[in-house]
Amino acid sequence: MRYLFRRFQRLVVVMVSVTFLTFLLVNVLPGDVAYEMAGMDSSEEEVQAIRDELGLDRNVVLRYLDWAGGILTGDWGASFINKEEVWHALAQRFPVSLELMLLAQLIALSLAVPMGLISAYRPGGRADRVIGTLAFASVSMPSFMTAILLIFFFSLHLGWLPATGYEPLSAGLWENLRPMILPALALGLVEWTVLMRTLRAEMIGVLQENYIALARAKGMSDARILLVHALRPSSFSMITLLGLQVGRLMGGSIIIEQIFGIPGIGRLLVHAVNTRDFIMIQGCVTLFAIAFVTANFLVDIAYAWLDPRVRLERARG
């Protein structure tokens, strides 16, 4: 309980410093939003009026406190540029980015787990070496390069999948998934290697445990030993990594959304940066940070599911 409380404290401090840091950075962005809002042929007075209205001349700390107070009461502010509610914009884009990241992580996991199992089964064996080489090739292939190759091959050459676009889920599951496949692949094909290596390393250790020897002595098949006895106790580091990877995944999704024209948070952010839409940038980064923190909290829960010992501690409080 004390531990949880300390963790929570730390979390709050981190959230505050993340948002304040972004606030500072965003505020020193060159270019004056007031000018852009007032339009090309506006007088100095008109611009100043906008500045006053937005409170742009006030102290940064005061403005931050204003903004933070707004967030706490559910008011994320409105875009300077088109007056769109930040919360509304985020709520609309977030599911899109989330879907992309979940699909990517799903692809990464469904590669990492079998490959990790096979590698750990006979470390140094032929399969392990082949997979190791594949992994090296994959990490050397950043997502934007994979994206180019995928588009070239599957969209232009074979014409199987669209190179850009997005369809909402309401258009049908397949219609929604079809344009998501290549972007998710581009993201997932980089991320699987770290997961695979982590799983492999931990599993090699677990396979030397006494309880694995006992499982063998019970006459269990290798497949059952790997999947039923060894996989769960081997996945702790990999699960932790899943949480930490969310940060990288969000970064990657910015590029991927840009390349494939997917209307997610990443595109929103790039657009906001280009138009100096402070309040929107601030909202996007805050959302990213919340997502990151939440993902890592979910990882804690997954831990409890994986390890009955943790579960018990939780039950006791």
Partner: peptide, 9 residues
Amino acid sequence: TWLAIPGLV
């Protein structure tokens, strides 16, 4: 703090 903001952002 640094880690909670995606590097690319």
